[in-house]
Design a protein around this nucleic acid. Structure first.
Lengths: 209, 209
DNA sequence: TAGATTGTTAATCGATTAACAATC
DNA sequence: TAGATTGTTAATCGATTAACAATC
């Protein structure tokens, strides 16, 4: 059904999912590309094109069933399966990820955190055990991990990524403010907070140009 | 010098800045679009096009002076000025932003946090005072604020954004997992953490397609 | 049935890449 | 000077928008 799907489309999928969830919660049962477009600031055309990358989920003359479309997009995003996560670094970013409320609802379960700070090791954060960083390899050999969250200083990020790869982890969510070099078969998605703030700064500096 | 600059270019600027900073720290003084392209996974052509949106910062036969180009891009991003920030919400996300190490280096200074939790009000986080949310209007009338960071539950985000707008704030960095409706002259940049994680999930689900 | 709205093809627009003269 | 590399114009590629027949 789905042939090549462009990056541009993939980046919009979570937005669709979010708006459909809000609509569902608001009791809306069906929506047209017209209405959804107004809500999401996209053209109706683009919405129909995007959705039809994955199949004809709509009905002529009616629009899209909100719950049904949300279900389809959730599956496309892989939210119907459980993702076992570990967090590398129990600093403020790692802690924020550990406490983030909606991840578990979407199938992301954090099973351990790792840190080098002796005062954190042995404690629990949001019921997640904090283990010593040196036990990473042992842990990976005994537990299947789908996603590793890199929440440590940039200086340690690359080295830790390498250890994760060696241990069999093939997906990384990176909060360290640096671009990682990774093998072809390792998936990495970056959250560069500084980049995002700098874009805001750019828009302030160039306001109304 | 700079006419219309596309969104695609703007989103790449922080990456240039980051790589140039790393190169500068590594003692590299000059770099060609060829080398920088290899490092950043962009074509040399694209790099030259991007940079020339803002002016001819290079020299034929030589390349670009690393420090000089970093300086130019820093100015373009508005990092040469001070941005006074406040953080709305002293939960784990707000705390992470308050502790983020590199913001101050880039001219972002958090002057206050706001929360409704009585056990947090009156304390300090990374030397930043936590004030009661109800004092927001008073604070805004007495202090100039360039950027407000929304780090509170989605349910309160829109209402708080409206209060900020009323108080004269014109730029918002939004961590709440919802899209805000904002007036034309309000700048909003979103950090949708769930969206980012869902994109990772998509790539895992569709690995090797 | 008539009206509404999709799915899909065609047209347009914009971003990326290629090419090359200018010049350090 | 010869070699390297930029700045910039032209060509290509891909994404968005428009249009409309199909159909609920």
């Amino acid at each position: 059904m789905a042939g090549y799907v462009s990056d541009a489309v993939i980046r919009r999928l979570p937005g669709y999912y979010r708006h459909l969830r809000e609509l569902e919660a608001a009791g809306v049962t069906s929506i047209s590309s017209q209405e959804l477009g107004k809500r999401m600031q996209l053209t109706p055309s683009q919405i129909r094109q995007d959705i039809n990358c994955f199949g004809g989920f709509g009905r002529q003359g009616y629009g899209y069933n909100v719950s049904e479309l949300k279900g389809h997009i959730g599956e496309i995003l892989g939210l119907d399966r459980l993702h076992r996560m570990i967090i590398l670094g129990a600093g403020s970013i790692g802690t924020a990820v550990a406490h983030y409320p909606t991840f578990s609802r979407e199938g992301f379960k954090t099973i351990a955190m790792f840190d080098v700070a002796t005062d954190k090791i042995g404690t629990r954060m949001n019921d997640i055990p904090v283990l010593p960083m040196e036990e990473l390899e042992k842990f990976l050999s005994e537990n299947h991990v789908d996603i590793a969250v890199l929440a440590l200083p940039a200086a340690y990020a690359q080295e830790t990524m390498n250890r994760l790869y060696e241990g069999g982890v093939r997906a990384v969510w990176n909060f360290a403010p640096t671009d990682l070099n990774h093998p072809e078969d390792m998936i990495a998605v970056n959250v560069h907070l500084s980049d995002s703030l700098q874009i805001l700064s750019y828009r302030i500096a160039h306001r109304g140009e």
